[in-house]
Lab assay of single mutants.
Amino acid sequence: VFVDDHLLEKVLELNAKGEKRLIKTWSRRSTIVPEMVGHTIAVYNGKQHVPVYITENMVGHKLGEFAP
């Protein structure tokens, strides 16, 4: 499973602090992992960042699938 390192670091850091804030990313190719559930990730679609709230059903899919 591929997840960009910088994105995973941000998610794990927020989980350690117990925070839930918006994470901006250009990494549409990253796979959604269970650690991301409950976070809102702003995924770049080529024009703007689209906020995507991550749920359990999204695990295993790519971030780009949810930012048309």
Score class of each variant (00 low, 15 high):
residue 6 H to T: 14
residue 1 V to A: 15
residue 8 L to R: 04
residue 13 E to V: 05
residue 30 S to A: 03
residue 46 G to F: 07
residue 66 F to M: 07
residue 22 L to I: 15
residue 56 E to P: 12
residue 34 P to R: 11
residue 47 K to Y: 11
residue 44 Y to F: 13
residue 19 E to W: 03
residue 60 G to I: 02
residue 31 T to H: 15
residue 21 R to D: 10
residue 66 F to K: 03
residue 8 L to M: 10
residue 64 G to H: 10
residue 38 G to Q: 06
residue 46 G to S: 11
residue 40 T to R: 08
residue 48 Q to M: 15
residue 24 K to A: 07
residue 57 N to Y: 11
residue 45 N to K: 08
residue 17 K to Y: 08
residue 62 K to G: 05
residue 5 D to G: 15
residue 36 M to Q: 01
residue 49 H to E: 04
residue 67 A to L: 05
residue 43 V to E: 00
residue 4 D to S: 04
residue 1 V to T: 13
residue 28 R to G: 05
residue 41 I to H: 00
residue 28 R to N: 04
residue 62 K to P: 11
residue 43 V to T: 07
residue 55 T to C: 14
residue 15 N to P: 01
residue 43 V to G: 00
residue 51 P to W: 05
residue 65 E to K: 13
residue 45 N to C: 11
residue 65 E to C: 14
residue 18 G to I: 03
residue 59 V to F: 15
residue 8 L to D: 01
residue 68 P to W: 05
residue 5 D to H: 15
residue 33 V to P: 03
residue 17 K to F: 06
residue 48 Q to F: 13
residue 37 V to F: 11
residue 41 I to V: 06
residue 35 E to C: 14
residue 58 M to P: 00
residue 43 V to A: 03
residue 64 G to D: 05
residue 19 E to K: 08
residue 11 V to L: 06
residue 19 E to R: 07
residue 53 Y to T: 09
residue 19 E to H: 07
residue 41 I to W: 00
residue 59 V to S: 06
residue 26 W to C: 15
residue 8 L to G: 01
residue 16 A to G: 09
residue 18 G to T: 04
residue 67 A to N: 04
residue 14 L to A: 10
residue 8 L to S: 03
residue 41 I to E: 00
residue 62 K to Q: 09
residue 44 Y to L: 06
residue 13 E to Y: 06
residue 3 V to L: 04
residue 10 K to T: 15
residue 36 M to S: 00
residue 33 V to C: 11
residue 9 E to D: 09
residue 7 L to E: 01
residue 64 G to V: 06
residue 43 V to C: 07
residue 19 E to D: 09
residue 47 K to Q: 10
residue 50 V to A: 09
residue 58 M to K: 09
residue 36 M to W: 01
residue 44 Y to K: 05
residue 1 V to S: 15
residue 66 F to T: 03
residue 5 D to R: 15
residue 9 E to M: 15
residue 9 E to L: 13
residue 40 T to V: 11
residue 44 Y to T: 10
residue 60 G to Y: 14
residue 27 S to R: 04
residue 64 G to T: 04
residue 19 E to C: 10
residue 22 L to P: 11
residue 44 Y to S: 07
residue 50 V to K: 12
residue 43 V to P: 06
residue 60 G to D: 09
residue 20 K to P: 02
residue 27 S to P: 02
residue 38 G to A: 10
residue 32 I to M: 03
residue 26 W to E: 13
residue 30 S to V: 02
residue 67 A to F: 05
residue 49 H to K: 03
residue 6 H to R: 10
residue 11 V to G: 00
residue 60 G to F: 15
residue 46 G to N: 07
residue 67 A to V: 07
residue 28 R to S: 05
residue 40 T to C: 14
residue 16 A to D: 06
residue 66 F to L: 07
residue 20 K to V: 07
residue 2 F to Y: 11
residue 39 H to M: 03
